[in-house]
């Protein structure tokens, strides 16, 4: 399933569609400790987090995830919102918690 299809299927709020809306999602990762995410998330993952500060953008870019879903409806802070256009990954938001999101991403994308 592509990043764009995931957003449509799960009804995610699109904060940025990123550079590659048709990129295939190849895995999922849930985590809020950024160094942990940095070291463990894989290229092509859908990363679900409640973190909303500017460093989310750097981690998403450097870990090469396909998309980020901000869970629990968290509000990205202003420096992060400004970075959306500069990173390749799509950024979505959902009122769902990370557990429910992970379950739904697994169900929809088969990862």
């Amino acid at each position: 399933m592509t990043v764009k299809q995931l957003a449509e299927t799960l009804g995610l709020e699109v904060l940025s569609m990123g550079d590659e809306p048709d990129r295939e999602i190849t895995g999922g990762y849930v985590g809020d400790l950024l160094s942990w995410v940095m070291g463990r998330a894989k290229s092509g993952d859908c990363w679900m987090t409640i973190m909303s500060n500017v460093n989310v953008a750097a981690v998403a870019e450097l870990a090469d995830v396909a998309c980020v879903i901000l869970a629990e409806g968290v509000e990205p802070d202003e420096p992060l919102a400004k970075k959306f256009d500069t990173i390749a990954a799509a950024v979505f938001r959902s009122p769902m918690g990370s557990h429910e999101l992970a379950w739904r991403v697994h169900d929809a994308a088969g990862v």
Binding site: L33, L34, S35, W36, G39, M51, N53, N55
Partner: peptide, 16 residues
């Protein structure tokens, strides 16, 4: 609170 300080910095650097 910013999501760092998990004690993974140097271990990640060694690992990768």
């Amino acid at each position: 609170e910013l999501g760092f300080g998990a004690g993974m910095g140097l271990p990640n650097m060694k690992r990768y």
